[in-house]
Amino acid sequence: MSAQTDFRDRQFLAVIGDEDSVTGLLLAGIGHVTPPPDNQKNFLVVDNKTDNAAIEAAFDKFSTERKDIAIILINQHVADRIRHRIDTYTAAFPTVLEIPSKDHPYDPEKDSVLRRIRRLFGE
């Protein structure tokens, strides 16, 4: 029920992805930086140098710490790097959606929603 009560404050989309994915989505006007001194961004650009801990920290921040995020968009290949975290995430808000990137097309086998389906029918 607590998940249902605080949903009205959730107004942003967050993105974790490669530079092109983030740039594309920010072009749509979803990027937001909170006022100083926090200056919290609702996006993370991931490249080869970004370590998994940083991705996980960003995911945790968007999914649990911040109460103003409604949807987390994450590149599927980035989600693969923190797959254990994504698969164990069960909260209603924010919703996590895996999106394709330029170099990694969408693979339904890896999608957390479709994995849930397999679990449901495999019972």
């Binding site: 959730r10 107004q11 942003f12 989309l13 530079e19 092109d20 983030v22 740039t23 920010l26 749509a28 006007g29 979803i30 990027g31 937001h32 930086v33 200056n39 609702n42 650009v45 409604a70 949807i71």
Partner: peptide, 15 residues
Amino acid sequence: GQDYYDQRMQAQRRT
């Protein structure tokens, strides 16, 4: 890319 992002951007599209 990210070098050009506005560091004070405000969301124009919200849920």
